[in-house]
Computed example of a mutant assay.
Amino acid sequence: MIVVYFYSQQHKIKETKFAAANEKLPLRLQKFECSESYKTEIRRYPNCVPQKCGRFVSDHLVEENEVNVLLSLVRTIFAITSSSGGATILNLNTGALSYKEQFVNAYRVPRVAAEIREHHLAVYNTIKNKIKHAIAEQFGISKESLYLTDPTFFSLLTNLTAKTINDEYWHTHVDKETYESFHYTSLLYLNTYQRDYKGGRFIFINDTDASTPNTIVEPKKGRVSAFTSGAENPHYVEQVTDGERYAITISFTCDSERAIEDLIIKKN
């Protein structure tokens, strides 16, 4: 217990808040050198090479009514079916939807499919384009060089005990290593840390030897966080200890062959 106590105290000291939930941020930006592996990869796409790698947060990109439309949709769907563990996902492009300890096709579950309307997809596509343009602007690249890629998904995180590896959302990882197509990652938070749930902060690991404080993003309804997907941005999500955390991961590639289409209503 003594070891655990001092370990936790050290971690509390070695954190810095990049974006607190009680802030209203037009834009906050950090730039730094890309990892060598990311540089090597991104050179294949000249119009997509960032001036520098980094991360940014903005609370002014997405309208509250847009967030409410998507939050209402995903709450309704996850009330119909969800994971037995702590992480439920819905990928509207592929239809992948958590059901107990497996996945089903959302478009083949009549009660779920009936909830997904054209106006939901229109709002989703509008938000995607806003984030795409912001990424292009902040990293100094051509917006035409960015393509939506898979997986792009809604998530619900809770404190339920993990049942499968898909429920273990709290492990440190690099997006480019997990998903080869990723070059730029973004998240839109649909509800707020401390108000709607406890835990669930997004944490960038800044130094593998722990000599540099980790950078914390506290989720807030309507907040967009985006970053280059390479080894310069390892991260994890804290375990949720109470409540329900809703977010959308929207991912972009520079490889046109890895692009996916904008969302449309799928017919059986």
Rank of each mutant, 00 (worst) to 15 (best):
T81H: 08
T94W: 12
A96M: 11
I80T: 08
T76N: 15
A96C: 07
V109N: 06
L92D: 01
V67C: 14
N68Q: 15
S72E: 10
N68M: 12
E115G: 02
S82Q: 12
V104L: 05
R108I: 05
E63C: 08
N91A: 13
S98A: 09
S72W: 06
N105G: 07
T88E: 02
L92R: 00
V112T: 04
R117E: 03
G86H: 06
T94D: 09
I116W: 01
S84F: 13
G54I: 13
I89E: 03
G54N: 10
S83L: 02
I80F: 11
T76W: 12
A113V: 00
S72Q: 12
E64N: 14
A87K: 13
G54F: 13
P110Q: 08
A79K: 13
A113N: 01
F78M: 08
S83W: 01
V62H: 08
G95Y: 07
F103Y: 11
L70C: 07
N105A: 10
A96Q: 12
L90Q: 03
V62A: 09
T76R: 15
L92H: 02
G54S: 13
A113G: 00
N91E: 11
A79P: 05
Y99L: 06
F78N: 02
A87L: 12
Q102G: 15
C53F: 06
Q102L: 11
V112M: 00
V112F: 04
E64Y: 13
C53K: 03
A96K: 13
C53I: 07
V69T: 15
F56E: 01
V67S: 09
D59E: 10
